[in-house]
Design a binder for these strands. Structure first.
Length: 263
DNA sequence: CGTGTTGTTCAGTT
DNA sequence: TAACTGAACAACAC
């Protein structure tokens, strides 16, 4: 379920185990999910180089090799994970890995159960944006002032704005629903109608939700989280028990509390 | 056999 | 023009 928090979990897994280790071999069981090079080219590019500190920008995981060397840009889309020696940072079922990096006796494996994600190879830092496209600042780096600036000229609803990776990178369907529910803002509220108090609330909740979700490595679904109601038969507001509304907003299934999130 | 799904991109529309 | 909608992508669960 890769949104910012999940990808951050994958980043931590790599940071914990693989940094400064040298690639000794690569295997690409599913070449369809390798972009920007061939399986042979991947080996020529990476073998002998060591992995540097991994970064994350929004939902992209960036794995740099060597000094100013090639990078792997990893995207999970709807499903997928990384595993280190079989220890996974998420659950992708029993799917076979698509791309595997060997580090001596250890191995880092990328899986994408529905095969929508991909591992992109670029040869340097300046090629990254060509793959990711323009991205807004990472949601974890957006302070209150910046949020106001980003939304200042924005038309349309707040949910579609927050989901737009060019505006803010990293927020997905679950995170945005959670943030707006806690901020008591209706997902379709036009951005221009949000006053300072509402923007304060959105920003504050964005920080809180992200902090908790990153700590957990995914969007939590406990009893105090809207996210926990997502696949309940009769979803109710964890605050007051009101039946939640459910409809398509910004093209995604959206839940909100009709009592608290007034338009 | 339909329906739905955490993300992104594209074509078409407002 | 900005931004919206819907379809498509692939695979699986229900």
């Amino acid at each position: 379920m890769p949104e910012l928090a999940d990808v951050e979990g994958h980043r931590r897994l790599v940071a914990e185990h693989a940094v400064d280790r040298e690639v000794t071999g690569v295997t690409v069981p599913d070449p369809d999910l390798l972009e920007g090079t061939t399986p042979q080219g991947l080996g020529r590019s990476l073998v002998g180089r060591s992995l540097q500190e991994p970064r994350r920008h929004g939902k992209w995981l960036i794995l740099p090799f060597g000094t100013d060397g090639p990078r792997l840009l990893v995207h999970f889309r709807m499903t997928g994970d990384l595993s280190w020696d079989g220890e996974t940072s998420d659950v992708a079922g029993d799917t076979d890995p698509a791309v595997v990096l060997d580090f001596g006796d250890h191995r880092l494996a990328y899986r994408s159960r529905r095969r929508l994600g991909a591992v992109h190879h670029v040869s340097g830092e300046d090629e990254i944006e060509g793959v990711t496209g323009p991205l807004g600042p990472d949601a974890l780096d957006v302070d209150r002032e910046r949020l106001g600036e980003l939304l200042a000229d924005r038309r349309g609803g707040i949910k579609s704005a927050l989901m737009d990776q060019e505006l803010v990178a990293g927020l997905g369907n679950e995170l945005v629903d959670e943030i707006l529910w806690r901020a008591q803002v209706h997902p379709q509220t036009p951005v221009g109608e949000l006053d300072d108090d509402a923007l304060d609330a959105v920003h504050h909740q964005m920080r809180d939700v992200l902090t908790d979700a990153v700590r957990a490595g995914h969007v939590p679904s406990g009893p105090t989280w809207l996210n926990g109601q997502r696949d309940a038969q009769e979803p109710t507001c964890p605050h007051d028990g009101t039946p939640l509304e459910r409809d398509q907003v910004a093209g995604r299934t959206t839940f909100w509390c009709p009592e608290e999130q007034t338009a």
